[in-house]
Design a binder for these strands. Structure first.
Lengths: 183, 183
DNA sequence: CTAAACTTTCAGTAATTTCTGAAAGTTTAG
DNA sequence: CTAAACTTTCAGAAATTACTGAAAGTTTAG
């Protein structure tokens, strides 16, 4: 398998970005390759295309599977396993968000809850707890809302986006719109 | 300056999370310390509290200022500079999102645009470009929308959140609500 | 101007993360 | 069962990233 210059550029870029998105360079490259290549790829093909060791490839694929970004694909008559993207771009993007939320937000929310339980030892600590509480609530809002977006799916997200600043206005009307809401 | 056990736990945790949020351990600790401590802190106090070198502290503060998360605060009569959070929790959170968008999304969008410009060299490449386009549009939706949320501010975000799944329903009514919208 | 108080820079070192490749493991064909 | 085809693991090497502390730089007081 050989990469066209187009695929090449994209693979290299996703490698560079990889670390910013929560995985390392080679894992980023592998993901780009699998997503952009139409046919299922074997581990060996991936290793060759990216010039990385077979061992590294194996670990990278394991990680991509843990993130549920690629999945195995068996080809009848073939001994080895092949790999394909685990879903549409939208699905993959959601998986990345989800996984990052688990790593970046959840542990903090959990700690903040614990710290807010502690009985404060001083005046100072009362204020500190108030701040921690503020952080907690903000994270909660943001994650709840991003969940919501994921549930909407891409089309509705698109509608919402086209609405743009209209969202603010809509909010002002919402009581009239949904008067039956149980408060 | 000595840290209460409460502040201590939070500082250590934000240090551990630091790398996941785009900066390193000590920078994370420094941010937590400055945010949770009521009084302005000098660089030396920060270095002492966290047991890190003065040099490292200087670089960390530089980074936090680049992120616009802390700012200098001059105390009349004092020779040295002090540091305080650059704004409310909401402001700080927005700065982090913003900065991460710049690092994690913008460069990719820019590359994708470039790659979509290239004239494809094969059938294959036409499909690849279609995929890249799909990724581009998704990133665009997500960032546009997160911008929108930032503009709303914390109170409206809260209203929106309480609405929960109601958002989907509201969307169905939006045409009736905003009939004057210029399409 | 000089000295004191303070900050920044940066070369070298330490810590951490990633990668390789050989060895061990697994599966299937026969 | 054995051998071949393939995958995974993991110890050590390489690459990257973070940290220290001494030296150079800056600012202010006098």
């Amino acid at each position: 398998m050989k990469m066209s210059p187009l695929v090449m550029s994209a693979v290299i870029h996703f490698g560079e970005m990889g670390s910013r998105w929560g995985f390392n360079r080679t894992v980023g490259q592998m993901l780009a390759l699998v997503v952009l290549h139409e046919e299922p790829l074997s581990a060996q093909e991936i290793a060759d295309a990216l010039s990385i060791s077979r061992g590294n490839t194996s670990m990278g694929l394991k990680e991509l599977q843990a993130w549920q970004l690629v999945k195995q694909h068996h080809i009848p008559g073939e001994r080895k396993e092949f790999f394909v993207p685990a879903g549409s771009i939208w699905v993959l993007a959601n998986r990345v968000f989800e996984e990052r939320r688990k790593r970046e937000i959840d542990p903090t929310m959990s700690l903040l809850r614990d710290l807010m339980m502690d009985t404060p030892n001083s005046e100072q600590d009362v204020n500190v707890q108030a701040r921690l509480n503020e952080i907690h609530d903000l994270l909660e809002s943001v994650t709840a809302w991003s969940q919501e977006l994921q549930n909407l799916g891409p089309e509705k997200l698109d509608t919402l986006m086209k609405l743009g600043a209209g969202v603010g206005r809509i909010l002002e009307f919402k009581d009239k719109l949904l008067p039956a809401k149980s408060k």
